[in-house]
Design a protein around this nucleic acid. Structure first.
Length: 757
DNA sequence: GTTCTAGAAC
DNA sequence: GTTCTAGAAC
């Protein structure tokens, strides 16, 4: 056979090399390979999982097969995938043998650099780019296990900066076909620090082997006595002033102790600025805490308040004691929620923020303090997850490792929560409706705790998937582990795709769902709360986007918003810019002429947001739309225009469609396209203006309109599919239905006449 | 919003 | 076998 002949004929002294690249997205793996191969003196093959399947992302086994094939053909191989965890590398290490050396090149560049590169780059093969990249890179780096010779590498080279990388590029590109490189570890400046992280993470969850040493304790059975925890019988607050800060490493990873129990610190929601009755709030807190702790084992909840004489803390403390809630698992702390570790030695990996609905920094109290302590990282990461939040819901935001709150306090996640408002000075006041208020506050805590559970679940998965170890706890815990094992195998693929976690687009994603956006809308069924089944997750996602309710916009849906906010950056795409509106051609016109008149007012996402105060803006948009329609009509008098809004647009930022009624466009492809312009889902601008003027709000029609049968907009005949409909409308000259002919809903040429049906 | 594609419909 | 749609993924 050809392959055998090649093997026999090759130089006996020659060794092929498998170089396993290890590095986060953005660390420069592909560039490294390309740089070496550009000037290489031996044949290299780069095996990239992002492109292995005919230019698309493939599987690990495809990579393994290609690598083996290349080696059989006398080529040396670069394995260009992240390979950050030992297990992800192990199968590739096995490619080594008497004729094949296996090297690792570790691109251990600063996380910040990897993230900024990932965020900035465009056209990445694995499609990991843009805002989502930061969260993904950050998450991956947290699981990093640096390679060791013991894994089977003959040589490992560590690069910690660009200079290191260039040196290694030079080393490999200079290698002739028969050259070999010395074995050993090279370039590692801090040999043990990060390797231990993986081990520590593992020990965190399981009984430590005796050989590990006396300072490692298990968190499952024992509390770390070095932390200032109240004992079973104590009911006093932990006071920050009496505690000293524990050791914190400089600039590096937060020191993880084997005793770290997943801990959520949270402020009392709605009792401060939103003036929720303390007695009622404390009942809800205690009830929700008890429910959560009964379900989920091995976690801690900490209620935090800055003021010493806090009424809510004492109420909660007393009620918790009455209900026999384990004070090791739930206690109260007086102090700054952003300084629990440095101020009290209390490590809380998750903190809750009493957020505002816009999820923006500022205001006062806890929200201002957390955004300020976390730095701009939190704002960016939050934006990445959601643009706003509704009362009763929560948004989980992984905190980038670059955030001071992460580095200093060990906070890995912030969960934004919005409670009900009873303060008439603040927006959306519920008056004195405590039936509604209690329901929403209850939902807020459910959302918060479910968000926390999702984080714990994800951490559990890391441990389980790494070590194939299963511990036992509550039944819930057991179920989570079960899912973790099956989900684990999807991780690479999912991460490569850019993990649009928590966004609307993920709502139907089964299986892996890390730290989901937790949305418990007021419409939601109570039974969904605290259940962690996949079904429930899906339900949350599906239900949080009702017309008129709050909405989370996917990244792809933000394009118009960005244009409206920064028209100067999109000058080439715009045909008119004014203070109030911008006008552009629809990128995918559904007719010969299809414009969008875009409102520039921030916060006006869609028709549901429009109120009486926006009436003049609506009229401006309408007149700008009419102006453009007339301009087109002067060129082609046969056109007919209709101006209107989608009841529930896909794209954020209020936009008026100005669309010619020929619907002659290759972009009109499906039922949704047609029905979005030809059912009551399309709200004529004239009607919207009238409704806002008279009632202060516009009628919004259901998305079910979009799946209605296909009917010609002129003669109203029904058609079985889009091609047949399009064929029909290209010829139909019937008069328009009378409803469209009234009230100037159709815009026609001055001399044109459109007859009634 | 579009693209991709499995599988239904023809 | 081909056309078309609906749903998932982005």
């Amino acid at each position: 056979m050809e392959v055998d002949c090649q093997n026999k004929s090759r130089d006996e002294n020659r060794k092929d090399i498998v170089v396993i690249l290890v590095g986060a997205p953005g660390s420069g793996k592909s560039t490294f390979c390309e740089d070496v191969m550009r000037t290489a003196h031996r044949p290299w093959v780069r095996i990239c999982q992002d492109t292995i399947a005919n230019g698309k992302a493939g599987t690990k086994s495809q990579c393994l097969k290609s690598a083996a094939d290349a080696l059989r053909n006398g080529k040396s191989v670069f394995i260009d995938r992240c390979n950050l965890e030992r297990e992800q590398r192990s199968d590739f290490v096995k490619l080594g043998g008497p004729q094949v050396d296996v090297h690792a090149v570790v691109l251990d560049l600063p996380a910040k650099l990897c993230i900024s590169r990932s965020v900035k780059r465009s056209g990445h093969e694995g499609n990991l780019q843009g805002g989502k990249a930061a969260a993904v890179v950050n998450r991956m780096l947290q699981k990093k296990e640096l390679p060791k010779l013991g894994e089977g590498f003959s040589r490992i080279t560590f690069c910690q900066n660009e200079g290191d990388v260039q040196n290694v590029v030079n080393t490999y590109s200079a290698l002739g076909p028969s050259d070999t490189l010395p074995s050993g570890c090279f370039g590692q400046k801090n040999p043990d620090a990060k390797i231990q992280l993986g081990i520590m993470k593992f020990l965190k969850k399981v009984d430590a082997p005796d050989t590990v040493g006396p300072d490692v304790q298990t968190c499952v059975s024992k509390q770390d006595t070095s932390e200032k925890l109240p004992s079973q019988k104590e009911t006093e607050n932990v006071k920050l002033s009496s505690c000293k800060a524990s050791e914190v490493t400089e600039g590096g990873d937060f020191p993880r102790k084997a005793s770290d129990v997943p801990t959520l610190a949270f402020p009392s929601i709605s009792t401060s600025d939103f003036q929720f009755n303390h007695e009622k709030a404390s009942d809800i807190i205690v009830e929700k805490v008890k429910g959560f702790l009964d379900e989920v084992g091995n976690v801690r909840l900490v209620l935090v308040d800055l003021s010493h004489g806090s009424k809510i803390l004492s109420l909660v403390r007393n009620k918790a004691a009455q209900k026999n809630i384990d004070s090791n698992k739930f206690f109260t702390v007086v102090g700054d929620i952003t300084r629990l570790y440095t101020g009290a030695g209390l490590r809380c990996n998750v903190i809750a923020n009493a957020a505002n609905w816009r999820l923006k920094p500022g205001g006062g109290g806890v929200n201002a303090a957390i955004f300020s302590a976390a730095g701009p990282d939190l704002e960016i990461a939050t934006k990445d997850r959601a643009g706003s939040i509704s009362p009763g819901s929560a948004v989980v935001v992984p905190l980038p490792s670059t955030s001071p709150l992460y580095k200093r306090e060990g906070v890995t996640h912030v969960i934004h929560v919005l409670g009900p408002n009873m303060n008439p000075q603040r927006p959306n006041c519920l008056g004195n409706d405590y039936i509604k208020g209690c329901k929403i506050l209850s939902e807020a805590y459910s959302s918060l705790f479910e968000g926390f559970a999702s984080i714990v679940r994800n951490q559990t998965k890391t441990v389980v998937s790494d070590k194939k170890f299963r511990s036992t706890s509550s039944e819930l815990h057991e179920n989570l582990l079960e899912r973790s094992l099956t989900d684990h195998y999807n991780i690479d693929q999912k991460v490569k795709r850019g993990g649009n976690y928590g966004s609307e687009s993920n709502k139907k994603c089964k299986g892996l769902r890390e730290e989901p956006l937790v949305h418990m809308m007021s419409e939601l069924d109570e039974k969904a709360i605290l259940s962690v089944s996949t079904d429930t997750m899906e339900k949350e996602g599906l239900e949080h986007d009702k017309v008129g309710g709050n909405k989370v916009w996917g990244t792809w849906a933000q394009a118009l918003y960005h244009i409206a906010m920064h028209p100067e950056k999109h000058k080439n795409d715009l045909i008119e810019i004014s203070d109030d509106v911008v006008v552009l051609n629809d990128l995918y016109p559904k007719a010969q002429k299809h414009l969008l008149v875009l409102a520039r007012l921030d916060g006006l996402d869609r028709l549901a947001d429009v109120q009486k105060e926006h009436l003049s803006l609506l009229r401006t948009m309408h007149s700008v739309g009419i102006k453009w329609a007339k301009k087109f009509l002067s060129d082609d008098a046969s056109l007919i225009f209709r101006l209107g809004y989608h009841s529930a647009p896909s794209m954020r930022q209020l936009h008026l469609h100005v669309i010619s009624q020929d619907f002659n466009s290759i972009h009109l492809k499906n039922k949704k396209h047609w029905n979005s312009f030809n059912t009551a889902f399309f709200r004529d601008s004239v009607d919207v203006i009238e409704e806002i003027d008279e009632h202060g709000k516009a009628t919004l029609n259901d998305e079910r309109m979009l799946s209605m049968e296909l009917r010609c907009h002129r003669c109203r005949s029904a058609h079985p599919n889009i091609p047949r409909l399009k064929s029909h409308i290209s010829n139909c000259q019937a008069n328009f239905p009378i409803t469209l002919l009234q009230n100037d809903r159709l815009v026609i040429a001055p001399n044109g006449a459109v007859n009634e049906a």
